[in-house]
Amino acid sequence: MKRIGVWGAAIGLLLIVAAVLLAGPISGHDPLAQNLSDRLLPPGTDGHLLGTDDKGRDVLARALYGGRISLLVGFVAATAAAVAGIALGLLAGYYGGWWDRIISGMADIWIAFPFLVLAVATLAVVGGTVPVLVVLLTFGAWVTPTRVTRGLARRLRGADHVQAAIGLGASDGRIIRRHVLPAVLPANLIVWTLTVGTLILIEGGLSFLGLGVRPPTPSWGNMLSDGRGYLELAWWATAAPGAALTLTVLLTNLLGDALRDSLDIKLRDR
């Protein structure tokens, strides 16, 4: 049952990624091409599988191209946060002492800050380009992988098999590489999948508020914001990005849950 969950969710996500990358061939339209005579067409009309929006642009094309930004930002930022988190967590957990005090202190302080407020303020000043979004969301997500890694690394430091390696004369580098790092990766994988979903949602929210990706470049968030204005006239222009966003985040959460369950069993077997 759990195996199906992992593979099902993973395949679903891969399909979404593939669809998004093949946005051009699949939709056959330019997401930015406005055609005011073809505005607000319902799905299925005239070669527009999901209809058109209030500027005559193909909704399917916009939804797929828009997914690129959301997925890109989500994946990259989550990955950057994971890399940073693992590095910092290893330092804090394995070495302890001052490293731990500084890093854990930073994490505690950071958590106390209202992140979204900071994000909004930054974006308002600097503008919502993709690099800025990625950096910002990485800052928003580094604490969890750090804490998770720190906890595991701390416990491993005192574990018998690590003590045995120390007793054999292994250097810290070797111990971290061969004993600690492989042990923290599974948990971080789970955190990563859940973070991707969360960050995609946050990016969507920021774009919705007009702070993220600016029109006419489509993103799920700004499409939702646009579509609000003519919801009764062309609900499909909102439904498409909404469904895509929901489905993607749902799949990342399912993947994370399924991974946690399947890894738990393996841990219990030992």
Binding site: D160, H161, Q163, A164, L168, G169, R178, P182, R270
Partner: peptide
């Protein structure tokens, strides 16, 4: 120090009580 101990460590070793936890599971 740990560095100074390194070359000597082979000469004295500890056998742990719980063989499950003293072996790296992977």
């Amino acid at each position: 120090s740990r560095r100074a101990l390194r070359p000597l460590r082979g000469g004295f070793q500890l056998v742990f009580q719980d063989p499950m936890s003293s072996l790296e599971p992977r």
